[in-house]
């Protein structure tokens, strides 16, 4: 568990509140993520973890506060959402690959369609990315022909193809069986080791403990406690953190 040196802040979240109608899902959220940092968000289901990720990616608007992504305010009504999404990749629990496209096409599509990059150059990069997630031989396969773990790795490659500053992982192993789960975790570990800024919402406590630079424990829409994994897992300060960890560890 080595903590590589962290760079400048890349995501700065201040006083964020998010409501669905009357229900407050996130309250007074503060978080700073630095370049190259690996952040894990843990906590019981329904504590607003996934919602927070969706707010960072401008998929869900926030009601109060500020989210700066690389200096751009996500809560600005005049915001070019597409500009933020080019910087922030997200990988979903259910992979959400495009079923009518092959693995290679899934990876190539956004750079070619959205960024208007040269398809030949993108294809070379996409093949390299598939190789990086160990799926170079599945380039021509459709998502329906791939296992869950393979699909999830294609989804990671697809996200990487946009050259994002940060990747959000939304419970990406929750739908996988233990074996395929491992493949995906290995891929994420390598990404983090390569210096990619990652924010993970996860229920994999052992994994969070291993790769995180900072762990946030959320419950009931608030950040209860945060700190290095050694503190959160071995010496939690808050009784709620302790109660949660007693249940899951």
């Amino acid at each position: 568990m080595d903590h590589h040196k962290l760079g400048a802040p890349i995501i700065v979240i201040k006083g964020v509140e998010k409501r669905f109608g009357e229900t407050v899902v996130l309250r007074e959220i503060d978080m700073v993520v630095h370049r190259g940092e690996t952040v894990c968000i843990i906590g019981p289901s329904g504590s607003g973890k996934s919602t927070l990720l969706r707010c960072i990616n401008a998929l869900a608007p926030i009601n109060k506060g500020s989210i700066l992504v690389d200096g751009v305010e996500v809560n600005d009504p005049k915001l070019d959402k597409l500009a933020v999404r080019r910087k922030v990749g997200i990988v979903f629990q259910q992979y959400n690959l495009f079923p009518h496209k092959t693995a290679l096409q899934n990876v190539m599509m956004a750079p070619v369609t959205v960024l208007k990059q040269d398809p030949r150059e993108v294809e070379a990069r996409a093949r390299a990315l598939l190789k990086r997630v160990r799926l170079e031989d599945k380039a021509g396969s459709y998502p329906g022909e791939l296992s869950g773990g393979q699909q999830q790795r294609v989804a990671i490659a697809r996200s990487l193809a946009m050259n994002p500053l940060v990747i959000l992982f939304d419970e990406v192993t929750a739908a996988l069986d233990p074996e395929t789960k491992k493949e995906v975790l290995v891929t994420i570990r390598e990404l983090a080791a390569d210096g990619m800024t990652c924010i993970l919402v996860t229920h994999e406590m052992a994994f969070a403990r291993e790769i995180a630079d900072t762990v946030y424990f959320t419950d009931g829409g608030v950040i209860v406690e945060s700190g290095p994994p050694s503190q959160i897992f071995q010496a939690p300060q808050n009784p709620r953190t302790r109660a949660f960890l007693d249940l899951v560890l």
Partner: peptide
């Protein structure tokens, strides 16, 4: 989810 996936890829 397909909409969301496409949206998240800008």
């Amino acid at each position: 989810a397909q909409w969301e996936s496409a949206e998240s890829l800008a």
